[in-house]
């Protein structure tokens, strides 16, 4: 019996899980809720957008360390051997299952330890327009970088995740960059060869 990841591609696994195995919630509700969070944070921090960015990141981190268990329980995919596999799994399975989108993986570094995700559609920022002062500093979807950092850390990959550009800020596209710092070898659960 061949391994499921070989017989069924990651894309198919992501599609099938999203379509048939997950309960869904209204997308507008999700967008509005997230927008309410960001605007409330801006009010609470008196429009100090650096603090808002950091807070969104830490919120995302807390979400990510828990969301990864959901992802693993739902898909039971084996450990990725390298960052190329990891990037595919993130874009084709994880983003598909949770946000129903498949960002493109580009801009690989020479050592193959850093890559970019191009988000052509972003359900978090549907219908959103940033005010002039926010446009210079606020990374609206910064929660996503926190989620990815937290989730990757729980599977023993210490990464830096940050936004390079954002359509809301006037850039041509939304780009999220992920760079592997190191593999946390001593934290790998014993029993996995």
């Amino acid at each position: 019996m061949s391994a499921p990841a070989q017989s069924k591609s990651l894309k198919a696994i992501g599609e099938d899980t999203w379509k048939n195995k997950t309960e869904k919630v209204n997308a507008e509700l999700f967008t509005l809720t997230y927008g309410a969070i960001v605007s409330q944070l801006c009010a609470d921090y008196d429009r100090d957008f650096q603090k808002v960015n950091n807070h969104l990141f830490s919120m995302g981190y807390n979400i990510g360390v828990r969301l990864v268990e959901d992802f693993l329980a739902r898909t039971a995919l084996p450990r990725c051997e390298n960052m190329v596999k990891t990037s595919e799994m993130i874009s084709k399975c994880a983003f598909k299952i949770f946000l129903n989108m498949t960002p493109q993986v580009t801009n690989w570094s020479s050592e193959k330890d850093a890559f970019s995700l191009m988000l052509d559609e972003n359900p978090l920022s549907d219908f959103v327009e940033l005010p002039m002062d926010a446009m210079k500093q606020l990374w609206y979807s910064n929660v996503l970088s926190g989620v990815l950092k937290g989730a990757l850390e729980m599977v023993q990959l210490d990464c830096d995740v940050w936004f390079v550009s954002d359509i809301l800020k006037g850039d041509p596209q939304t780009e999220l960059r992920i760079k592997l710092n190191k593999v946390l070898k001593d934290e790998v659960p014993i029993g996995e060869d």
Partner: peptide, 23 residues
């Protein structure tokens, strides 16, 4: 009743790889 956030009548329906190799 419903299985939480899992749709369908069972949590998963395909075979999977064990993460426990030498424990």
């Amino acid at each position: 009743g419903k299985l939480g956030s899992f749709k369908g009548d069972d949590f998963f329906k395909e075979s999977f790889q064990s993460w426990n190799r030498s424990g």
